[in-house]
């Protein structure tokens, strides 16, 4: 049992433990879940020397306050929530060594919607169906199947050798209450470019069933994120409603992260981490996997546009993005001389 702990002073709007998701159980109707912004969460893990599948805290918008109860390396990536350590601004997208007793506060959102905090070692909550992700609607996994509350104490596992080396390297550079690396991975930040972003999408399996006008409207109008958006999906509002050419009965069929369904009211829904495993509405599009994290960072009221790409282009974007991610991981391992983590 490791003695590394983080205590929740204030949970904020919504703070949950998440990892990369729960796979292999969708055939039983169990949602895949996991972090909304996989790029930010994986980066945060790698920065502290963890494997990318370790559990992190997903922090929504603002209000979260944590006490770092033992000296440890953490990293915060994703949305910029004006994070402070004992009142001093905390640099994001890099490993930061924090003294025992310091208070990390997410005070006001500057950009984005979700922030990820990784702790060296990874959060020590039990795996349920192979994952540490919290599925709130089913009260499954994470920290007792629920969102974090004031007073909760999260245990952190024993850090890896790589984490220990990052810790050692940072321990020479304390300035005030913490020591941050002078290198960073903020080129992975999508939250800085969220003024009407372009989201690439492939025409979906039922695209041809929509009217020619709706097929154009999907890619030619600006959509706004609706207020009823959450981890399950983003509800989109556009001026032009999307309509089928003729009423069609769909058989329920498996959906994926980023499936864009259109219910009869004509307002599309982008299915995200906590989506149901199957859906019965017509699918007009499928968001390219590389752009799904943008939905994690858009807030209700924010606007964006879809851009059509082919399946082949989406695949190439995925492989290119993954190559960049692996380069970051390799660079960190190389920098600290640990080939295996």
């Amino acid at each position: 049992m490791s003695s590394y702990r983080i205590k929740v002073l204030r949970p904020g709007l919504l703070t949950t433990v998440q990892d990369l998701g729960r796979y292999g159980f969708q055939k039983y109707g169990v949602v895949a879940g996991g972090v909304m912004d996989t790029g930010a969460a994986r980066t945060a893990n790698w920065l502290v020397g963890n494997a990318d599948r370790e559990a992190v805290l997903e922090i929504t918008l603002t209000g979260t306050e944590l006490v770092i109860e033992s000296e440890m390396v953490i990293a915060v990536c994703g949305g910029d929530m004006s994070v402070t350590i004992d009142g001093q601004a905390m640099p994001l997208w890099r490993p930061v060594l924090i003294r025992a007793g310091a208070v990390v506060k997410f005070s006001a959102y500057r950009s984005g919607c979700r922030s990820y905090l990784a702790a060296a070692g990874g959060f020590d909550v039990p795996e349920v169906m192979g994952s540490r992700s919290t599925y709130l609607r089913g009260s499954i996994g994470g920290f007792e199947g629920r969102a974090m509350k004031a007073g909760d104490v999260l245990a952190v596992k024993q850090p890896s050798l790589l984490s220990a080396r990052i810790h050692a390297a940072l321990s020479a550079g304390f300035e005030g209450g913490f020591s941050a690396s002078n290198w960073h991975a903020s080129h992975f930040a999508i939250a800085e470019n969220l003024a009407e972003p372009i989201i690439r999408a492939i025409p979906g399996t039922h695209f041809d069933l929509f009217t020619p006008g709706s097929q154009e409207d999907l890619f030619n109008q600006t959509f706004r994120i609706g207020v009823q958006s959450d981890r399950m999906g983003c509800r989109l509002e556009g001026t032009q409603k999307l309509q089928l050419s003729s009423p069609a009965e769909m058989l329920s069929e498996a959906v994926a992260n980023g499936t864009v369904q259109v219910p009869p009211d004509g307002n599309p829904i982008v299915l995200l981490a906590d989506r149901q495993t199957t859906g019965g509405y017509p699918r007009i599009a499928q968001v390219a996997t590389v752009d799904i994290p943008v939905f994690a960072q858009l807030k209700p009221g924010d606007r964006f546009r879809f851009e059509a790409v082919t399946q082949q282009e989406a695949e190439r974007l995925y492989l290119d993005g993954e190559r960049d991610m692996q380069l970051l991981k390799a660079a960190i391992s190389y920098k600290f001389g640990a080939r295996h983590t």
């Binding site: 069929e253 498996a254 994926a256 390219a288 989406a314 695949e315 974007l317 995925y318």
Partner: peptide, 9 residues
């Protein structure tokens, strides 16, 4: 049928 870039139906 492709279901995006990481699944097939």
């Amino acid at each position: 049928l492709p279901l995006g870039d990481s699944a097939v139906i």
